[in-house]
Design a protein around this nucleic acid. Structure first.
Length: 651
RNA sequence: GCGCCCGUAGCUCAAUGGAUAGAGCGUUGCCCUCCGAAGGCAAAGGCUACUGGUUCGAGCCCAGUCGGGCGCACCA
């Protein structure tokens, strides 16, 4: 709501400045004040103007303030500090705007151009762990934020079903366990957990043994060929573990539109086409000599970052590297490859959210235009992959131009490591000097996503049981799930992307302080206030209507109570700005902080016994208090939705 | 060696170049005859790693130093 207000305001300020000083400012910065009693918004424009006009900032501010105070929607303006102009809004008019914006939100304006977000992309050879959870929560939340900004988003999950990691567990099944397809099919539930341990055992078994390690390469080739018993094992294990990953992420309310399988990229010969294009455009060169003799390389010298060596795309034996395949895949995402997959409905597809998969056979009709390409593509991948991602971008630029490269975005994030305490709890040996313990799939070292969720749900369930022993088991289970999801999603989002998260079980299990449950609780409490008011015979709708009368709002906003509510109104008004910032800076943590700030403002307001709705001293007061509570409930429920945080019926 | 990221309160983290650097946790006090305390109020806690520079203004930008992490494969 505040974006429109501020852009309108900026126009009027520009006009006022032009009239007063004959200078046209192109950008009008509207900032927040350090404290609300200094004003609602701050303008530092006198500092810029001082240079252009050749006068002192403070004098300019003094001259400008009375004029700005006359602008519609502004109550008055004051000069502060060395030349800040602080604006005090017409609070009742603004409150009325916020209110109508929240209670009857305007239709979303759709933006042109499709956006693709790829996230999750876990190797289908073992259970998902906390690192994957960070990836998926980050990606899923970013999708929600993009949609809130009016973008059409297709969410994709890349399945490397023909990679070495799958080959490794197949080596385990064939060599260590001597299991047939039927044997593996007979493994009851949690094949992903089974493979977690098997994968670690295979690495131990490889040791330094070259013959054993050779089995990995042989198995990989067998899987890539897509025929024979080994390939069959690989396909079965990968497909089953993908289903497990989808189920794990569904617990966190994370879903996808399309699964892209590496095996289909091979089968559709994406790389062959990309290779043709790259050669045609001379984007890659054949090396006649040097250490990359006999290879096709991509020049990286003039690309940003500089100083990097040329990247080998095709090896001297004629095979393509992973990065080469990734360039082909990225070109497809951008609609620049000229090839497309075939599609089928995935077996986990629901009517609520249709899930599609690339396929080599039995094509289903009605797939969305996945192959039409997107103008913006976000790849959610950890920062360790920054270099190959830069290579992909350089490849895209050489082949499809600057615009396509600009649309290729690496949404990178740092890894999740384990605190020493948590690593110890899990039974791992911990080096005393180490600050934290790295997760290692090869050593089976890490916290599985489902185990973490189970622990969170169990703890939440216990909390409920102690606070409210009367609750039914079904109620408790449902609420415990919501609280667990809220806690985990908030925890994974509150850190900046480039910050390593030291995962500590105790910290992640916290339900107090700056957490998801704090926000959930605030809404639940607010709703129960409204329920109580209604149950005592008050007409909530009528009270809301009454609250909008200006003669009522105006004096109330000037009271101490109104001031407390005002900080909440202003914070809620800034939500569109927060979403815009989160998307522009590609930093979802902006949103968690914003949500927390709003919840905190509400807590500060409602906990005061003098602000009781039920025991309001007059119907007028009851009316404005109902308004505060209602606006908060509606708005914060929406914000929680953007973060994927569910609001339980009761805590 | 080259490149990227990080260094802010005891701990975990914030702070579009703006005003007196903020939260949460932890610590110490208060507050449930008050719409559920997963809450609120208050206190203590800081030479923003260091040295220079740019700027009306620097935690933020630039140069350098010191610490920590990660990349720089004919692996994926």
């Amino acid at each position: 709501m505040i974006l429109a207000f501020q852009s309108d305001l900026a126009g009027r300020i520009r006009q006022t400045v032009a009239e007063a000083f004959g200078v046209t400012l192109d950008e009008i910065l509207v900032q927040t004040t350090p404290k609300l009693d200094l004003g609602d918004m701050a303008l530092p424009l006198a500092f810029d103007l001082a240079k252009k006009v050749g006068r002192k900032p403070r004098d300019i501010a003094q001259e400008l303030a009375p004029r700005l105070g006359n602008i519609d929607g502004i109550d008055h303006a004051e000069v502060a500090g060395g030349g800040f102009i602080n604006l005090f809004l017409d609070r009742s008019a603004f409150t009325a705007s916020v209110s109508s914006f929240i209670l009857s939100p305007p239709a979303k304006v759709l933006r042109d151009g499709r956006v693709i977000v790829e996230h999750t992309s876990i190797n289908p050879n073992k259970a998902a762990h906390i690192g994957h959870v960070r990836n998926s929560i980050l990606g899923d939340t970013f999708v929600r934020l993009l949609q809130a900004r009016g973008h059409e988003v297709l969410t994709q999950n890349y399945i490397d079903d023909t990679g070495v990691q799958v080959a490794d567990v197949i080596v385990g099944f064939e060599q260590l366990e001597k299991k047939s397809l039927a044997d593996i099919q007979a493994i009851p539930d949690r094949l992903d957990y089974y493979c977690w341990d098997l994968y670690a055992r295979v690495f131990e078994w490889y040791g330094g043994d070259k013959e054993r390690k050779a089995l990995q390469v042989g198995t990989l080739h067998a899987i890539e060929k897509h025929e024979g018993p080994t390939a069959e094992l690989g396909a079965y294990v990968a497909a089953r573990i993908v289903r497990a990953h989808i189920a794990t992420m569904a617990r966190l309310d994370i879903g996808y539109d399309l699964l892209v399988r590496e095996s289909d990229i091979l089968q559709q010969h994406f790389w062959a086409r990309a290779f043709e294009l790259l050669k045609e455009k001379k984007a890659i060169e054949f090396e006649e000599e040097g250490k990359a003799k006999g290879c096709w390389v991509l020049r990286m010298d003039e690309a940003e970052g500089g100083g990097e060596e040329n990247k080998i795309i095709v090896r001297s034996n004629g095979t393509v590297t992973y990065t080469g395949k990734d360039i082909a895949y990225q070109l497809w995402k951008l609609g620049k490859l000229g090839l497309d997959f075939r599609y089928r409905r995935h077996e986990d597809s629901t009517t609520a959210r249709p899930l599609w998969s690339s396929t080599g056979d039995h094509v289903d009709e009605g797939a969305p235009p996945f192959g039409a390409g997107a103008s913006l593509v976000f790849n959610v991948i950890d920062v360790g992959q920054s270099y190959p991602q830069r290579v992909v971008k350089a490849g895209v630029e050489a082949l499809a131009g600057r615009e396509a490269a600009e649309g290729t975005r690496h949404l990178g994030y740092e890894k999740v490591v384990l605190s020493k305490a948590t690593a110890r709890e899990l039974g791992y040996e911990v080096d005393e000097d180490a600050g934290a313990v790295k997760v290692s799939g090869r050593r089976g070292l890490g916290v599985k996503a489902d185990d973490l969720l189970d622990a969170l749900e169990a703890k939440a369930s216990n909390e409920i049981a102690t606070r409210d022993p009367e609750r039914s088991l079904a109620d408790r289970t449902k609420a415990a799930h919501d609280i667990a999801v809220g806690a985990l999603r908030y925890f994974m989002l509150r850190f900046s992307r480039n910050r390593i998260i030291t995962f500590d079980m105790e910290e992640a299990l916290a339900f107090t302080g700056e957490t998801g449950p704090y926000i959930q609780n605030s809404v639940v409490r607010a709703r129960s206030i409204l329920a109580k008011v209604a149950s005592e015979g008050h007409d909530v709708e009528a009270l809301l209507k009454r609250a909008h009368e200006r003669s009522l709002l105006d004096p109330w906003l000037a009271t101490a109570e109104g001031g407390s509510a005002w900080s909440l109104f202003l914070a809620m008004a800034r939500t569109d700005e927060a979403i815009e910032t989160a998307v522009r800076t590609e930093e979802p943590s902006v949103m968690t902080r914003h949500a927390f700030q709003i919840a905190q403002a509400f807590h500060g307001y409602y906990q005061n016994p003098a602000h009781s709705v039920v025991r309001a001293e007059s119907e007028d007061l009851r009316a404005v208090r109902v308004l505060v509570v209602q606006l908060f409930v509606r708005h914060t429920t929406d914000i929680a939705g953007l973060l994927g945080i569910p609001i339980p019926d009761r805590m």
